[in-house]
Amino acid sequence: MVSIRGPVGSLAHDDARTAVSELYSRHWAGLVRLAVLVVNDWPAAEDAVQEAFTDLYRHWPLRDNDKALGWLRTTVVNRCRSVLRRRRTAQLYTPPHEEPHDSAESTAVLGEDRLQVRRALQALPARSREVLVLRYYLDLPFDEIAQILGISPSTARATASRGLTALTQKLEEVR
């Protein structure tokens, strides 16, 4: 593979590669030990050091190339801090609560029970059905049910009582 580069790009690229390679061979092990002491995890430490060297290569030349080792140490420590922040965030995360899933058999039985209740409810007179749905499905107080249906609260109570009795009888017939 032939690469065509101008003299300036080639020199800068070669200088960066040479300088970073030399720093890498001399200081990689020490920087990894530094990172291990901070994050207490060898693979994460190696990643932090590798990313620091990659950043150094991208930023080469530095304003003062003699301070490259200090720049690397600072970058490694900052990368280690980021690793620790991500860990802390992961530890604090609480996944949303999931209800336990019912078995297929219990879901089928529950579905059948609900179907029986709906059929029995449909067999009731309209006023009884309305009162029971408003009371036990929407959990409304009798005063509000009375207002919605245009009846007195005592009529709503009596209708609910009679409706529950009729619903219970219809469900007992089915079972």
Rank of each mutant, 00 (worst) to 15 (best):
P125C: 02
V133M: 14
V109Q: 12
L115C: 06
L138T: 07
E144A: 04
P141C: 02
Y136R: 01
L140Y: 05
Y136K: 00
F142V: 03
S106A: 13
S128L: 06
L138P: 02
V109I: 14
H101A: 15
L134H: 08
L140N: 03
R118M: 10
P141E: 03
R118S: 11
Q116V: 05
P141Q: 01
L140G: 04
E144N: 02
A104V: 14
A126W: 08
A123H: 09
R119D: 10
D102W: 06
D139H: 15
G111F: 08
L110G: 06
L138E: 15
L132G: 02
L138Y: 08
T107E: 15
Y136Q: 03
S128Q: 13
Y137M: 06
R135Y: 04
E144D: 10
V131Q: 05
L124R: 05
E112H: 11
Y137P: 00
D102L: 15
D143L: 01
P125Q: 07
L140T: 02
V109G: 01
D139L: 14
L138N: 08
R118F: 06
L121Y: 04
R129N: 00
R135S: 08
R119Q: 12
D139K: 15
V117F: 07
G111E: 13
L124V: 07
S128D: 10
L115P: 01
G111Q: 12
R129M: 02
A104Q: 13
